[in-house]
């Protein structure tokens, strides 16, 4: 993938997450003291459900790019070789496991969010 594409995905997803956070905070701020019924009505509206679903996917995408960057910085044969020469041989395997763990955790987070808001 092109560097510019990743750059735009990260920036636009960050803006989307910022907008969503501000929207939630504004609601909380304008509805003081916040009562359960008001919060329930707010979280049951279709806009909330759709936007929160989008946030789940977008935040995982945003985090994936960030963590991929971290992984390709610190889990390489060169960087791991600084710790121990033997580790350098397993750099791809270690990075693969790191990516796999993150993907599993990410999918689990999405599943929990979707299950919580749509059930």
């Amino acid at each position: 993938m092109m560097g510019s594409t990743l750059f735009f995905i990260q920036r636009f997803s960050a803006l989307f997450l910022l907008g969503y956070s501000l929207w939630i905070m504004t609601f909380v701020f304008l509805n003081q003291p916040l009562e359960f019924t008001a919060w329930q009505i707010f979280t049951n509206q279709l806009e909330f459900l759709i936007l929160t679903t989008l946030v789940a996917f977008i935040s995982i995408l945003h985090a994936y790019i960030g963590l991929w960057t971290v992984g390709t910085d610190y889990f390489t044969s060169r960087t791991l070789g600084f710790l121990h020469p033997e580790l350098a041989k397993y750099a791809n395997l270690i990075r693969g496991i790191y990516t796999l763990i993150f993907c599993i955790v990410g999918l689990l987070i999405i599943f929990i969010i979707l299950l919580t808001i749509w059930s």
């Binding site: 993938m1 092109m2 560097g3 510019s4 990743l6 750059f7 960057t69 390709t72």
Partner: peptide, 9 residues
């Protein structure tokens, strides 16, 4: 230079 590493790192 357009790949994710050359400049964007």
């Amino acid at each position: 230079l357009s790949d994710p590493f050359s400049v964007y790192r």
